[in-house]
Each structure stands twice: as structure tokens, then as C-alpha cells.
Amino acid sequence: MVTKASKAKGLSLHTGLNLVSGAHYGGWTGELSACEFDANDMAALARGQGLKPTVLLTKKATRAAVLASIRAAAKSLKSGDLFFLSYSGHGGQVPDVTGEESDKQDETWCLYDGQLIDDELYAELGRFAKGVRVLVLSDSCHSGTVTRAAPPPPGAAAPAKSRMMPPAVAMRTYRDHQAFYDKLQRDVARADGGRPADPDAALAQLAVSPRLTALAAQLKAAVILVSGCQDNQTSLDGEHNGAFTERLLMVWNQGKFEGNYASFHAQIKARMPASQTPNLFVLGPAAAFLRQRPFKL
């Protein structure tokens, strides 16, 4: 417990990728415009609240660097401390080889030299000590359903670019590195006693699935996750910020926001375009965390 004589410690990691390595993604580099801006703006926000930020941009945002930074935070932080993790970039998918349905897809973050599977992220969150508060903000697409809108009429402005890895690229990347991604999932499942660790499913079905309730209960830390969109939507890029990050910064209003996490999410959601609805999930003993002012140490 943090006493009056001790001050909570805050660390943060901000990852933003304006492109990925074509060497891993079958020649696709997935150029985006605003992800590095997002990461730098989140780092500035964190620094302003007394956290010590680490920023990993594009080529430096490798799997090894991101995992090493998360693990270092997990080792360093104790009860009452805060870890703020933000990701801005493409979201992708790989087939789930450890779940109950053969056609199930696992969501991913597209890091520079390879994808970080949601199973892995969940396992990393499990490393944090009891009483640590973890906030995860993801301005990326985690969509399992892809729809194609009609092309804009002549003379209309081009639509904002989606932060979703194209399905054909996802399939090609998985095909070229299948053994790698399958092993990652099986290693996580083995470490968890053979049970599939699927944070998205756990978050969505926590109230109805005893198995997933038990899985989530393994988390000692209090975790709040806010995604930029629903599972059947895409997150939009922009010139200076992603749509989600832009609205978040508007609501935060240079630190003038005074509500809690629940009202913070609600006000961001109210400002979003109809095509993109941010989602709020919690894991672990997060009730008290939700009632706190965002980013507060």
C-alpha cells in the first residue's frame, strides 16, 4: 500500500508506428500519418502527470523492445503505482490455434518486425504485482468483421485511412510465419496451464463465462483497457492524430478534465464519428481504479 509518506510511481510506454517492415509483412509497409504524433502526444500527457514515459516510434517499435519495456515496468512497479501503455498503429489478426473454435481469430498489434498477439499482451499484464494500476489505450483496429464502403462520389474528399491491416496481408503474413505465431500462442497457453488466454473474449464475456471469469481472476493488477473502436469497426487515421486520440486529447483539455475514467470514456465516445465507438473494459480488481481521475498517480 502507498502511504502518506510515500508517493506512487508512474511509468508509461507509448508506441506509434507510421509504417512496418515489409520484410515481415510480405512486402506491405502499411503507411500511416499520425501514429508517431499520437505516441508523442500521449508521452507529453503522461509526463505532465508526473509519469516517466518511454517512446518507441516506428523502426524502434519492435517486438523485443515493446516486450522488454512492459516487463521492466512489471518488475519495477509496486502496489499503488501506475503503468500507462498506449499503442497507435495497425491492428491485425492471426488464426487462433489454442481456442475452442477452429475459425477463431486472435487480434494483434502490428509492431515493426512482427505482430504482438493479444494472448501475449494478456500474459504480460499478468506479470504486474497486486495493487498496480494499468491503463491501456489502443488507437488501432481490432476488427473481426470487414466491410467495404462504396467509393466516394467524384469530387468528394478521400475517406480517412483505416488502421486495419488488410485481410489479404494478414493471411499472407500468417502463412509466411505460421510456425512463429502458432508457437507464441501455444507457449502462452502452456504457461497458463493449457487454457487459451484471449483478453478480448475475456473482457466481452466476463459476466457469462465461468472459464473466462477464472482466467481474468488471475490478474493481480487492476487493468483498464480502452480501445479505439468496437470489434466490428475500424479505427481511423488522421493528419495529426488518430480519430480516437484526437477526441481523447480534446476531452482531456490540457488536464482540465476532472471526472473519472468512466466519464472520460463516455465523453470521448460522445465525440466520435458514428463509424467508430471506443470500448471500455476492465480486468482484475478495477472498481476503485475506474472511479479515479485519469492518469492520476
Rank of each mutant, 00 (worst) to 15 (best):
P273C: 02
E31M: 06
L57D: 11
M171Y: 12
G26F: 12
E36Q: 12
K256I: 01
R291S: 09
V251C: 09
R195T: 12
W252N: 08
D198E: 10
I268N: 08
Q178S: 14
L184F: 01
E31H: 11
T234V: 15
M171G: 15
V223K: 06
L17T: 09
L57E: 13
K52Y: 11
S33C: 08
V134Y: 08
E107V: 08
L203D: 07
H14K: 09
K220T: 10
A68V: 06
P166M: 11
Q267K: 15
M42P: 02
Q276A: 04
D182V: 08
G114R: 03
L82I: 10
C229S: 14
G50I: 00
D106R: 04
D38S: 02
G131E: 07
R133I: 08
Q93E: 12
V132L: 05
A73M: 10
G155Q: 05
L121N: 00
S102M: 07
G80Q: 10
R63M: 08
K75S: 11
G114T: 03
L297C: 06
M165S: 06
G155V: 06
K9R: 15
A179V: 07
H177W: 08
L51T: 03
T108E: 00
A157G: 14
K60R: 15
D198T: 14
K161D: 10
F289I: 05
E101R: 13
Y112I: 01
A197M: 07
C110R: 07
D103Q: 09
D96F: 07
L184R: 11
D182W: 04
Q254I: 00
K269V: 06
G259S: 08
E101G: 02
F180Q: 12
V94W: 02
F295M: 01
L283A: 13
L77D: 05
E101L: 13
A221K: 01
P159Q: 07
V134N: 08
L67K: 14
D106E: 09
D187W: 04
T147W: 10
S76F: 01
A150E: 14
Y25Q: 06
L17M: 06
F180W: 10
Q205F: 15
P196A: 10
R172Q: 15
W28G: 05
A72S: 15
F128Y: 01
A204Q: 14
S140D: 06
D237P: 04
G26H: 11
V55C: 04
G91M: 05
N232R: 09
D118H: 02
I268V: 14
L184D: 01
K4T: 12
G92F: 03
D38V: 00
P154I: 03
A72Y: 07
A204T: 13
E239I: 11
K296P: 00
K78L: 04
R247S: 13
N260C: 08
L219V: 02
E124W: 01
C110G: 06
D139W: 02
D182P: 00
G48C: 07
L283K: 06
Y174G: 07
L11G: 09
R47K: 15
T15Q: 02
Q205P: 00
L85K: 05
G228D: 02
M42E: 03
A34V: 01
A123I: 00
G91R: 02
V2F: 03
R271H: 09
Q230A: 15
I70K: 05
A46Y: 02
L111I: 01
L249F: 14
R47N: 14
V226M: 15
S12K: 10
E31K: 12
